[in-house]
């Protein structure tokens, strides 16, 4: 499924941060979001995932097509790797988790509680969760935070595998992940300071 975004404007804390954002993401491709801190990468990704309404503009794919992941993985420390994964699979109406465990090299850790995993292993588990959602478009917010170089490489391979399988990925990151990807710099889309809302005109 193509993801086409047209003239999108989104707000953080009631104030517009981005406007006029537009891009197209084809299956099998990845798009890297760049831009300085505070430009609104997280806001854009949350808007696409359906967690907050857009101020204006259109998003061609519904939120149901997207699997959202921020740097918090939604893992429960006292549940095992398998239990964590099985829970999310059931929430998303999927059955098998074997493939996800295998692909992310987690089968040996299946019965270990999530609190005993290293940061890299947790991140892999978080990514395996994306696989059990069964959704085509991955929307990832700073996925490589707190990962060492080896884990970043593993992560990059995982995303590349998803792309080869016909998925797509939208990733906000500063790191090169080791596969070909288009880049989108958000700096030109910074919302211009202007009349914010109708409170300006109260004194016009």
């Amino acid at each position: 499924m193509d993801l086409t975004v047209q003239d999108l404007a989104c707000a953080r804390g009631g104030l517009p941060v981005l406007e006029g954002v537009g891009f197209t993401l084809h299956p099998g491709r990845a798009l890297m979001l760049r831009g300085p801190n505070g430009i609104g990468k997280t806001t854009l990704l949350r808007t696409l995932a359906g967690l907050q309404p857009a101020l204006s503009g259109t998003i061609s794919a519904p939120p149901e097509a997207m699997a959202y992941a921020a740097h918090a993985d939604g893992l429960k420390a006292t549940l095992s790797v398998e239990e964590n994964l099985r829970f999310w699979a059931r929430i998303f109406g999927q059955t098998g988790i074997g493939q996800a465990l295998d692909e992310f090299n987690l089968a040996d850790l299946a019965h270990r509680p999530a609190q005993n995993l290293s940061a890299g292993q947790k991140r892999r588990l978080g990514l395996a969760r994306l696989l059990v959602t069964g959704r085509p478009i991955w929307v990832l917010d700073e996925p490589t935070v707190s990962l060492d170089a080896a884990s970043v490489a593993l992560f990059g391979q995982a995303v590349a595998r998803h792309l080869r399988a016909g998925g797509a990925a939208l990733i906000a990151t500063h790191i090169h992940l080791g596969f070909e990807a288009a880049e989108l710099d958000l700096t030109p889309f910074r919302a211009r300071p202007r009349a914010m809302d109708r409170f300006d005109e109260a004194f016009a």
């Binding site: 104030l15 910074r190 300071p193 914010m196 409170f199 109260a202």
Partner: peptide, 17 residues
């Protein structure tokens, strides 16, 4: 309250500019 909101809007605009 409306004036307070106006001030907030102005401060935010200042910060963005």
């Amino acid at each position: 309250e409306i004036r307070a909101r106006r001030i907030k809007a102005l401060i935010a605009r200042e910060r963005m500019a």
